[in-house]
Design a binder for these strands. Structure first.
Length: 464
DNA sequence: TGAAATGTTGGGGCG
DNA sequence: ACGCCCCAACATTTC
C-alpha cells in the first residue's frame, strides 16, 4: 500500500484556517498536513516587541483551533531554510505549501528556499494576485486611480476556501514552547474574535464609514488592520462580504460608505504592488529628486514628537494613543505625519521607523506607502505644498476635544473654547484648569504658520 | 484624504 | 431711487 502524502503548511502571514488557499492546496490528495510556523530572527528582531506579542497571541489561538481539529501548530526557531530542511526530514514531508508574500525579504527568502526544497507558493495576501493588475503595455501602475479602475474592471466573483474539518495526523516531532505574551484589550487575538468584529462592522458601521471614519474620537473605522497584517482575517473574505453588503443597501450615502471602505482595501493592495514592483522604496523616495529635501532632523524635536509633547493637542493625542495602544486613528496618522515631515522637517523615514516600532499593524508596504504619500515623495503622493494645519484638523475632526482629552489627561479641565489652542488661554484660566502652559502641558514646539512657510521653502528648493 | 490668499458676487445698510 | 461700502459666502488660484 502506498504511503500517504505528507505536506508542510508553512504559515507566515496567513495565520488562519478560513479562506486559505495554501492550506487547502497542502490538504489536497488527502495528504496529512504539518502546520509549521518559524520564529525567524531576521523578522522578529526587526519587528517590535509589541507586534511580536500580538503575533504570539495569534499563534496560540491558531494552535487552539488546530487542536480542535486533531492537529497542532509546530513552532520552530531559527533560519527558515535549515529549519525547513530539518522538519522535512523529521516528518518525511513531500512538499511545502505557503502563501506568497511580496515584500523584499520574503521574496529573496522564498527564492533561495525554492532552490533547495519543493516550495509551492499560492496567492492570498491580496484580493487579486498581484500579477493580474497591469497596464495595457504590461507595466505596473504607479497612480492609484487608474490602478483601482483597472482592478475593479477585472475582478471576478470567487469562492472562499472552506475551513478544513480535519488536517490528518501529525508525525511525533517537537515544537518550541510558545513565547510569553499578553492579550491586547483592543485587539483580541484569533480568527473567531476577528470574524465577529468584521460581522459587527459590516452590519452596523460600514454604511456610516464615509461620514464617521474621520472623527478621531469615534469608532468609525473597522479596527481590522492588525489582523490583515498577519492574515488572521482573509482580505478576500473581507472584500467579498463588504461587496455583498453593498448590494443590499439602498441609500446612496450607505453605498458610499461601503465603497470607500473597499477603496481602502485597494490602497493596501496598491502599496503592496508598489513595494513589489519598486523595492527601492524601502530604501528611499520613490522619486529620486526628493532625496534632496534638506531635512532638519532635530533630535530633540523628534523626541517631543515621539512622546506626544509638541504642544499641539491633536498631534500629541495621536502620538500618545500610538504609544499606549500600538494603534492610531487614520486621520491622526495623517496629521502627525504631516507635522513631522512638514512642520518639523524631519525625514519621513524617521517617522516610518517609529511607526513600525510601535504599530500592531506595522507593515512595510502600507507604512512606507503612507509615509511617502504624506511626505509627497511617493508614487501617487500628496503634492508637497499640502501642509495640514494641526489646529484646523483638530477643530474639524475632534470638535469637542473628546479624543484629545481621552489621551491627554493634563487637558482634562481645559474649556472647549481652548481645547485646540491651549496656549491661548489667559494665565488665570490656565491656573483654574490646572493646565499651565510650559509646566503641565508644553508650549508649542514651533508656530505652525512659520513652520509651514519654512517647509514650503525647503520643498520648493528641490523642485526641478 | 489641504490651507491660505485672492477674486467674485450679491444682499443689506446707509447717506 | 441710486450709488457706495461692507462683508459674508462662495469660487478660484496659488503655495
Amino acid at each position: 500500500m502506498e504511503r500517504k502524502r505528507i505536506n508542510i503548511w508553512w504559515t507566515r502571514r496567513d495565520l488562519r484556517l478560513h479562506d486559505n488557499q495554501a492550506l487547502t492546496a497542502a490538504l489536497s490528495e488527502n495528504a496529512d498536513v504539518v502546520p509549521l510556523f518559524i520564529l525567524d530572527e531576521n523578522i522578529l528582531d526587526r519587528s517590535s516587541p509589541r507586534r511580536n506579542e500580538f503575533l504570539f497571541e495569534n499563534l496560540k489561538s491558531l494552535d487552539t483551533s488546530l487542536r480542535k481539529r486533531g492537529s497542532r501548530l509546530i513552532l520552530r526557531k531559527g533560519k527558515p531554510l535549515p529549519v525547513l530542511q530539518q522538519v522535512m526530514q523529521e516528518s518525511g514531508a513531500d512538499a511545502i505549501f505557503a502563501e506568497e508574500d511580496y515584500s523584499p525579504y520574503a521574496k529573496s527568502r522564498d527564492k533561495q528556499i525554492s532552490e533547495y526544497l519543493p516550495l509551492i507558493l499560492l496567492p492570498g495576501l491580496t484580493i487579486q494576485p498581484l500579477s493580474t493588475v497591469k497596464k495595457a503595455d504590461g507595466n505596473p501602475y504607479t497612480i492609484f486611480t487608474p490602478y483601482s479602475r483597472q482592478w475593479e474592471k477585472i475582478i471576478q466573483p470567487f469562492k472562499e476556501f472552506p475551513v478544513p474539518t480535519q488536517l490528518g495526523d501529525i508525525p511525533p516531532i517537537s515544537s518550541e514552547p510558545f513565547p510569553l505574551s499578553h492579550p491586547f484589550p483592543l485587539f483580541p487575538a484569533g480568527e473567531e474574535a476577528v470574524q465577529k468584529r468584521l460581522m459587527v462592522f459590516l452590519q452596523d458601521r460600514i454604511t456610516e464609514y464615509s461620514s464617521q471614519r474621520d472623527f478621531a474620537a469615534k469608532e468609525g473605522t473597522s479596527l481590522l488592520s492588525p489582523y490583515f497584517h498577519f492574515g488572521v482575517l482573509s482580505i478576500r473574505s473581507a472584500y467579498q462580504r463588504a461587496f455583498r453588503r453593498q448590494n443590499n443597501v439602498s441609500l446612496p450615502e450607505e453605498k458610499e460608505g461601503v465603497e470607500i471602505w473597499i477603496n481602502e482595501l485597494l490602497w493596501r493592495e496598491f502599496f503592496i504592488m508598489i513595494l513589489s514592483e519598486f523595492p527601492h522604496v524601502a530604501q528611499g523616495s520613490f522619486r529620486k529628486v526628493y532625496e534632496r529635501i534638506p531635512w532638519r532632523n532635530n533630535e530633540e524635536e523628534f523626541n517631543t514628537w515621539k512622546t506626544g509633547k509638541t504642544g499641539y493637542p491633536l498631534v500629541d493625542a495621536g502620538m500618545r494613543q500610538l504609544l499606549e495602544t500600538g494603534w492610531m486613528h487614520n486621520r491622526t496618522r495623517m496629521v502627525v505625519a504631516s507635522f513631522l515631515c512638514k512642520d518639523l522637517l524631519i525625514s519621513w523615514q524617521r517617522g516610518e521607523a517609529w511607526f513600525n516600532a510601535q504599530l500592531l499593524d506595522g507593515d512595510l508596504a502600507a507604512n512606507n506607502g503612507g509615509w511617502q504619500w504624506c511626505a509627497g515623495c511617493g508614487t501617487d503622493a500628496a503634492p508637497y505644498f499640502r501642509v495640514f494645519n494641526p489646529i484646523t484638523q483638530s477643530k474639524r475632526f475632534d470638535p469637542d476635544g473628546e479624543y484629545i482629552r481621552a489621551w491627554l489627561p493634563e487637558l482634562e479641565n481645559v474649556p472647549d473654547r481652548y481645547i485646540h489652542t491651549p496656549w491661548k488661554m489667559p494665565y488665570d484660566l490656565q491656573m483654574e484648569s490646572k493646565c499651565v502652559i510650559g509646566k503641565d502641558y508644553p508650549d508649542r514646539i514651533v508656530e505652525h504658520a512659520f513652520a509651514r512657510q519654512r517647509a514650503l521653502d525647503a520643498y520648493s528648493k528641490i523642485k526641478i
